[in-house]
Structure formats: C-alpha cells, structure tokens
C-alpha cells in the first residue's frame, strides 16, 4: 500500500508562536486517519499545511507522492476538502454551488449533471436543490459541504471537524459515510476533538500543543497510555501467587462483601483472559467474573498528554 500523505517534520511558526512543531505524519492509502486533540492543538494548521493552504515554516508534504507546493494542480485534483467553517457561497443555491465546484474540477455538461444528481440523492439534498446555501439548516449545510468536497471523486478526503456542532444522528451518518468512502478506497483524514468518535478511525494521531503525542490504532493508543490492557477480576481467594507467576501488575484491589475486585495491567486482555482464569481456578481461587476494562480514548488521551515525559514512539 502506498502513502496517501507523507508529511515530514512540519513546523509552522506564527510570529513568535509555534503552532505546529516538527510533526511527521504518514497516512497509508485506504484508511480513516483521525487527527485528534483539543482545540488549539494545531490540527487545523497541520491539515492546512498538508493541503498547501499554509506554507510550512519548515518540512515538506507529499500527497500520493506529489509535492503539494510544486505540483499544486496535480495534487489538488486528487484531494477533497471540507473546512471547519461552512465555506461555500451562501447566495448561490445548493445546485449552483455544486455545479460551480464541478466546473472548477473540470467536470462539465452531462457528466456534471449526472454527478450532481448522484450527490443530491446520496446526501439527501434533492429537496433543497433550489435553496440558497445561506438559508439551509446547520446539518443540511454540512451535508452540502461534504457533497462539494467529494464532487471530484477525490482519492483523499480531508475533513476538518466535520461533527463540531452537529447533532448525534448526523454525526453517526457522517461516520458511516466516511467508512463507506474508505471501503471504496478513499483515504479519509479527519480531525476531531470528540474522543469517542475517534474509535471509528483505523489510525489516529494524538496532537497536543503542536506536537504528535502518540500515534497508532485506537487500541494501540490505549495500550500505550497504560502500558497494556486493563483486566478486572472479581474473585474469592488469594490471587497473588498466580498473578506474580504471570508477571502482571496489580493496579488496585478492594474487597467488598467477601469478594475481592482486582484490576490488573496485562499486555493483551483478549489473549490472557482465558489462561489466567484457568490458572486461578486451578489454584483454588474462585473467579466470579473476569472481564477486560473498556478504556476510553479520552482517558488515554489525558494520560498521554498529562504526563511530563514523552510517550512518543
């Protein structure tokens, strides 16, 4: 698989403020890549540099191997972009906006008509086609923005905070769309500060104060945050010998009504759950329940960025 985005050592300085500091991102083709982080972490600045909207202070960007600053036209033909704020013409209708953007990508005549009809249906915009974009509700506007971003059938779709201020059904709808696009082979780069959404991504990079704090799949990120998975056991008896034998770390334990609740740090919960339970039972400890603890990305993020030492791999 080739690289859809190769951004190397990107740095952007505004005056004396370093908005992005030495960020390297390599995004493989055909994945949903999430750029996560709180507001002000440098996500938008990073994607603007990737798209050539901002000139990096240092570093370079290639999209499908094409240098964005040197071969702008060739690169932009492969890219679709949905900015954070609605950026289409409010005084043009839904249809006029789409037709304009089709033409700007060199799609005209019957081909354009076909594509626009397709998009109107696909994004449930048909009933609004004659309405000025400025008179649409927030959700419809976002759907129009997405339609305009994919009018040229991009191989890379970049979406900046698509779900900010959007109601939950539409958020879900958007993620379904992104997954569908990914399944069609489109690479999706999406920024968000909603950590729960990021579970939808194949890969994520956590940004904090202008740098990438961690990178990997959601599962890897969580493991990175704690150094493994969390496993909770509710048992009667002493688990100490077996836990030591396995070499797991006990993070906490409390006894309530004769049942001890132990939280363990294990390398991979799904692999060790069965063997650990069996070993405990064999040693005479009664296992009431044993289950991996779901860790939220939010917890992981806070752990990763709060620590003073670098967790960057």
């Amino acid at each position: 698989m080739g690289l859809a985005i190769e951004a190397v050592n990107l740095t952007k300085v505004f005056g004396i403020f370093k908005a992005v500091n030495n960020v390297t991102l390599k995004v493989e083709e055909g994945v949903i890549f999430g750029l996560l982080g709180p507001n002000g972490a440098g996500k938008t600045t990073t994607i603007r540099m990737i798209l050539g909207l901002l000139k990096p202070t240092s570093g370079y960007v290639k999209v499908f191997g094409i240098d964005v600053t040197r071969e702008r036209k060739r690169a932009l033909n492969l890219v679709g972009y949905m900015p954070q704020q609605f950026s289409l013409y409010e005084d043009l209708t839904v249809e006029e906006n789409l037709r304009l953007y089709a033409s700007l990508y060199g799609i005209n005549g019957l081909e354009a008509e076909k594509r626009i009809r397709e998009l109107l249906d696909e994004l449930m915009l048909a009933e609004y086609r004659k309405r000025p974009a400025g008179k649409l509700s927030g959700g419809t506007r976002q759907r129009l923005a997405l339609a305009a971003a994919v009018v040229n059938r991009p191989r890379l779709l970049v979406v900046d905070e698509p779900t900010a201020g959007v109601d939950p059904p539409l958020r879900r709808y958007f993620w379904e769309k992104f997954r569908k696009l990914r399944d069609e082979g489109v690479t999706v780069l999406v920024t968000t500060h909603y950590m729960d959404e990021a579970e939808n991504c194949d890969k994520i990079a956590l940004m904090s104060r202008g740098s990438v704090a961690a990178e990997g799949s959601p599962l890897e990120i969580k493991r990175l945050a704690y150094g493994g998975d969390l496993l909770e056991l509710e048992i009667v008896g002493n688990p100490q010998p077996i836990v030591e034998e396995f070499g797991f770390k006990v993070l906490s334990s409390e006894t309530r009504g004769g049942v001890e609740k132990v939280t363990l740090l294990v390398p991979d919960a799904s692999l060790v759950l069965a063997s650990l339970t069996r070993a405990l039972e064999r040693s005479g400890v009664k296992v009431v329940r044993a289950y991996p603890v779901p860790v939220s990305l939010e917890d992981a993020f806070i752990r990763l960025t709060a620590s003073s030492y670098s967790l960057k791999r």
Binding site: L51, L53, R72, K73, R74, L76, N77, V79, Y81, P83, Q85, F86, S87, L88, Y89, E90, Y101, L104, Y105, G106, A148, N152
Partner: peptide, 14 residues
C-alpha cells in the same frame, strides 16, 4: 472574510 476563499483555492485553479 466569508471564508469562501479557502474552499475556492482548494480546487485546481490558478
């Protein structure tokens, strides 16, 4: 100011 510029210049125009 209306930010339409940002979307416009992402198309392959000069």
């Amino acid at each position: 100011e209306r930010r339409t510029f940002e979307q416009l210049i992402m198309t392959p125009i000069t």
